[in-house]
Design a protein around this nucleic acid. Sequence first.
DNA 1: TGTACATCAGTGAACGCGCGTTCACTGATGTAC
DNA 2: TGTACATCAGTGAACGCGCGTTCACTGATGTAC
Lengths: 189, 189
Amino acid sequence: MRKSKLETAETRKRIVEAASAQFRENGIAETGLADLMGAAGLTHGGFYKHFESKEQVVVESVELATQSMMRATEAILAAAPPGKEIQAFLADYLSTDHQNHPARACPFATLSCDAARSSDAVRTAFTRGFQNLVETIARQFKDLSPAAAKKEALVTLSTMIGALTISRFVNDPDLSTAVLREAKKHLTP
Amino acid sequence: MRKSKLETAETRKRIVEAASAQFRENGIAETGLADLMGAAGLTHGGFYKHFESKEQVVVESVELATQSMMRATEAILAAAPPGKEIQAFLADYLSTDHQNHPARACPFATLSCDAARSSDAVRTAFTRGFQNLVETIARQFKDLSPAAAKKEALVTLSTMIGALTISRFVNDPDLSTAVLREAKKHLTP
DNA sequence: TGTACATCAGTGAACGCGCGTTCACTGATGTAC
DNA sequence: TGTACATCAGTGAACGCGCGTTCACTGATGTAC
């Protein structure tokens, strides 16, 4: 049942999208190839027609996750009223909706500790994605020098990623909400 | 080869200590029972003489990790010159030494995303440990009301945990150092 | 443009391996008299 | 206090299971003439 080149490319994309969601939802080690192929509507045997190894789909799904987060962030910044860009980003990122939907959430929060233990290729994908995000956020601090804006972006993102991560592992809904709320209040200019 | 009650208790403690280090170093899913029993100097078959399941040793090793972090934090706060407690805690937590030794590092940074996907019992252990840490840090903000101090502690810990986590997954040593340095500068009163 | 053949996406079974868990066994420790 | 027996910590082999990976097979797609 050979498929056309177009269909093959679409299937491959679907696998990476499914992997990107599954890894964020359940973790990298916890997601089997059968799980992610199933989520893409396929059986696991066909995996190696698209990828050389699990490692390769991990790298590509991290790249996809960071890129789609970048696109979403840029859309939020572009849609915000002038001067309210950071507020809009904070409101979206530090929301309970974001907290409760790991499959489409920030990969730096959902996969951070998996990332720290991953191969160099995977860490490189995370690092590039993070650097892009830092640059985009730094650009919003328009009254600071580029160097100062980057430093501000590093602190802002540390607080945001830390707060979202904590709000996700904490078992107490009130504490989760408080962490997100206080981070948002603290970071709002 | 039955062991005395004292030896049995010491062995059990050794297993939990080994587990607590191994989980932080390599992740919970990535650490097998044979790994952690081996790290405790035993063969894997004896595991079930001490624990009912892997889940149970995960809970106890999280409790141990959060408690030993609390003790270390209290020792740092007590040893600091009066008025410099927060600075001492920041210098220790946001150091490259802490970054580079996950096995004895803050479990909220090394296991945060594993924690978010864990069972309720494991998340409860993390949550209790985090609440204790929040209270201890809040006590350092002596010129704030208890409620305001707790809010300040939540933001401070979000930034610290976020910065350490980022510094660990990022592949670029300069960026790692910059994240820790900027978080420290930002949080130093 | 039509035909013949090569290619290959996807299936489902199979591979070896390591996982969490169980078990028979050993022999020192604990306990009952 | 000494003796006889029960207990059980630790070992190492074994269990079923799911993992990542491989493979024979199918049949539609792509290609060469």
